[in-house]
Design a protein around this nucleic acid. Sequence first.
DNA 1: ACCTGAACACCGTTCAAGT
DNA 2: ACCTGAACACCGTTCAAGT
Lengths: 198, 198
Amino acid sequence: MHPRTRSYHHGDLRAALLTRAEETLREKGPAALSLRELARDLGVSHAAPSRHFKDKQALLDALAQSGFERMAAVLGASQDGVPEKISEQVEAVVRAYVGFARDNAALLDLMYSVKHDPEASDALLEATQRWSDLVLRLVADAQARGEVREGPLEHTALPVFATLHGYADLAVSGMLPPEMDEHGLDVVIAFILRGIRP
Amino acid sequence: MHPRTRSYHHGDLRAALLTRAEETLREKGPAALSLRELARDLGVSHAAPSRHFKDKQALLDALAQSGFERMAAVLGASQDGVPEKISEQVEAVVRAYVGFARDNAALLDLMYSVKHDPEASDALLEATQRWSDLVLRLVADAQARGEVREGPLEHTALPVFATLHGYADLAVSGMLPPEMDEHGLDVVIAFILRGIRP
DNA sequence: ACCTGAACACCGTTCAAGT
DNA sequence: ACCTGAACACCGTTCAAGT
């Protein structure tokens, strides 16, 4: 009857599941995420997803992984055309990170949730590595230019990392007096710069 | 038959549910938390919990609230007997916060999750306020002693907040090169002190 | 007041069977 | 290869009824 009886998803059910899952996550929260409903939305049987994700957790892990990858891309792009000056670079990264966090609050929650089972997620680990490397490299370069205090990279970059992430997380979970949601960004950037300057 | 047929929980089913829920959260993670299993564990019918929590979410909110309250207590206690010197005070708070985060990883996740529905959780909001007030007061006092740079409290305390929370969250979700899990603490404390000194 | 039992509409996961 | 249908053992929530 319907012209799309034979695979609406062009054999790309896996990708379709991920896309739809992220929409649901964004619109209705993580609790509303069900494999059966996803399957219903995509017009396949409830057992079909299991061909592509052995588990609900596997779907969530894949979602988290794609989140880290896109975040790395956003952070990377934030440095385009920014002069090699640590203050401007830090400002750009912080704004990009907080922006990503705001636009993908529920996804970020999932990305940093304590869940993802130890094994099976080497890909996830690699994805997280990629964006932390980005910050590390940024700090390392500035250090080479003498704009950042000396010391092992883990010592100089770690607190930047922590402050960046902490501010975004607090802002996203509504823990901040809302009157400074925007102003707070400048304050945090200035704080980071004070903390890393030579 | 059994001597405990009449209310094993001495009419304190609500408290018993919270206690057991937190055990399950700690031992088996949030996904394993089910009202029905909780009821089974406590020897009541599966419908009994609804007398005390209108919702599963209500149970989770109550759990989060008790988390914030205990965290405020731990942070408060961390200042006992600490000399009025901002460096020592910050060190004590940071260690206390990270310690609490480590000991209650899953609970912290829940506390900061994007979930808790806007209404119904005034109590929750109040509980979060209490611990942020603690940090605010600490910074304000040090500021009065001239140990912290001038400026509105939200500007001086906010980044402390962010760094503190960010480090704990990263450490707990295993995002840090584990070799500096302990050493990182010192680095972060030093960074915070650099950021707030006059 | 507090709890039970049954009922309803959902889940995730597995597995034979179809194409 | 990829998907279906039925089956199994679970869920959360509601509501009459019991004590």
